[in-house]
């Protein structure tokens, strides 16, 4: 297999990942620095993600819980982004080894892509589930049902999109018919 083609795929995949992935990176950094006084983000977390009544009745200081919540989100998004990057790069490299040896054969590997993507999404769900139900973070106990749904839904959709852009650009040219809308990519010597 031509290493030049594989390296090209890795580079294109990295570009695809970066198109949306920078948001996750920025969000992780923001959370890693911890709560910043009366920021809008902190207020939004309080309004949308946690059980306000429970926190008030338990006497737990919100400032203390917020540190734990920021920590939880920073670690969770790091895990999710890493998984997404690894999955997209794995597919991009692996696509060069799919046995597309004749015209019209690439589409038969769509099933491979569905299975691979299914596994990736299951890992995303697993990561979100582990962090939101984890005993390692205090804040996890105070997340509201709506909060868990928001975190899960946003993670599910957002990281799928990051992954999809990564593999859309990174998949080997000859295997593009094996991914959803892959053959819609215009013919260009750059892509």
């Amino acid at each position: 297999m031509n290493m030049k083609h594989i390296l090209r795929s890795v580079l294109l995949s990295a570009i695809g990942l970066a198109l949306l992935g920078w948001v996750s990176f920025w969000f992780t950094t923001l959370n890693a620095f911890g709560p910043d006084g009366e920021s809008d983000l902190l207020q939004w977390y309080f309004n949308k993600l946690v059980q306000k009544e429970e926190i008030t009745s338990s006497g737990m200081p919100w400032e203390e819980l917020a540190v734990s919540l920021y920590n939880l989100l920073a670690q969770m998004t790091t895990a999710l982004l890493s998984t997404t990057v690894v999955a997209a790069l794995l597919w991009s490299i692996g696509s060069h080894f799919l046995n597309v040896n004749a015209p019209g054969k690439a589409k038969f590997y769509f099933i491979y892509w569905i299975i691979f993507t299914g596994i990736f999404m299951a890992i995303v769900v697993g990561i979100v589930f582990w962090f939101t139900k984890s005993a390692a973070f205090n804040a996890a106990d105070y997340l509201s049902d709506d909060g868990v749904i928001i975190i899960s839904a946003v993670s599910f959709i957002y990281y799928f999109l990051v992954y999809y852009l990564g593999i859309l650009l990174g998949t080997a040219r000859f295997a593009r018919s094996s991914i959803l809308f892959g053959n819609k990519i215009p013919v260009s010597e750059l892509l």
Binding site: K4, H5, R8, H96, N101, A172
Partner: peptide, 14 residues
């Protein structure tokens, strides 16, 4: 392999 031929035709410079 035929796979390499397929790969090459997608990348060879025109």
């Amino acid at each position: 392999k035929l796979l390499n031929v397929m790969s090459n035709i997608c990348y060879q410079r025109i």
